[in-house]
Design a protein around this nucleic acid. Structure first.
Lengths: 206, 206
DNA sequence: CTAACTTAGTTAGATGCTCTAACTTCAAGC
DNA sequence: GCTTGAAGTTAGAGCATCTAACTAAGTTAG
């Protein structure tokens, strides 16, 4: 079953794993052309099936996008963990690495990031997506907790995390949406991150 | 010409001011149901014309949305000026008022705010929208400059403005998109704003 | 004042999307 | 081998954007 490759499947009546094929085709299309230009019909053509086929596997078009969002959150978290591990958990460098990664992820996966946050608010109201976002946040808070413990910072890690997330999310959005470029061309957003992070961590050394 | 009211126009072959009617119908629809559920055909029905009529006044559907965005930026700026004037230009209170207004505007006009920032990136690439956003930013920087002058702060007002905007934009987005609620139910985002603003202004009193 | 032109509507229709209904193929279990 | 159900198919309804061709009404020139 699992050794049936895409090659072997081609030309058959039954696809083999259409569900996964549609999710990955949809992810590719969203990344390439943006969710606002996404059509499930295009994903079907990529997967080589008729435009009615998805409805054997998904409630509707939105369910596909909901799953794309969940995969996006999971991947972002995984990469964030790697970034922290590389910089050394509990260090200031880890905080830089984690937050830099957030911005980098947004810039490298703009259309996906937009979809994950607010582009289509309805998609975020369903339980699995909510849960996925919560889990993602939990993993970030854990890194902040490590930092607070190592640096003997008394303030609640989640409170610090929310303050920093707010800034970094704004940074990612404004850079991604080219609002900085419209208003202050050539702005060094990485420097803005590095300079502001200590203020938000209330780092004494700042 | 201008004394021809909507009443007087009803039933006539020529609408009178279809262009404005479609812009305001579209604005209403965006605010009510979100840009992701907007259809120009609905706006036509609201205005009482055929679905082909808009094409005498606009390039395409996107041009209507571009104008909705521009009006949104202008209104946001106007209201921001009023907020500052009320609190007293140059004061810390004015900074609070201006930034609080930004968040309030986002929350009270969620669908419009989303459209103004990133929901459909293509809409923001055209010249008039870019110019409108720049003008809006310029008016905000002017308020920061007043503050710096009055408080004898040496740092470049635009640099401070960019730092604060970044935070406040993140706050508006995360609150609007219910990301705070998913992750930290009942978070007092207004307190978060008030507490963090001094850190970002590098206010000595903080 | 009227004829010609222009502006701003109309209807009709091409094309494309989502989703449903009804049919068909194929794999698996008994 | 037969039956059954899962996973495809085609056909089509309903709605959207946008174009083309037509028409009504307002404007201007002679």
């Amino acid at each position: 079953m699992s050794e049936r490759t895409a090659e072997a499947v081609r030309g058959r009546y039954h696809h083999g794993d259409l569900r996964e094929a549609l999710i990955s085709a949809s992810t590719e299309l969203v990344l390439a052309r943006g969710a606002e230009n996404f059509s499930l019909a295009d994903a079907c053509r990529l997967a080589g099936v008729s435009t009615a086929a998805p409805y054997k596997h998904f409630r509707d078009r939105n369910e596909v996008l909901e799953i794309v969002i969940q995969r996006g959150f999971t991947r972002m978290s995984d990469e964030g963990d790697v970034a922290v591990a590389g910089a050394g958990p509990g260090t200031f460098d880890a905080m830089i690495a984690l937050n830099t990664h957030y911005v980098d992820f947004a810039l490298e996966n703009q259309s996906l990031f937009r979809l994950m946050f607010g582009q289509n608010p309805e998609l975020k109201t369903v339980e699995p997506v909510l849960k996925c976002g919560q889990e993602c946040f939990g993993r970030v808070v854990a890194h902040f907790a490590d930092y607070c413990r190592a640096q003997r910072i008394a303030e609640d890690p989640q409170a610090i995390c929310l303050r920093v997330w707010t800034f970094i999310h704004g940074l990612a959005c404004l850079k991604m949406d080219e609002d900085y470029d419209a208003v202050s061309p050539g702005l060094d957003y990485h420097a803005l991150l590095i300079d502001t992070l200590p203020l938000l961590l209330k780092d004494r050394a700042a």
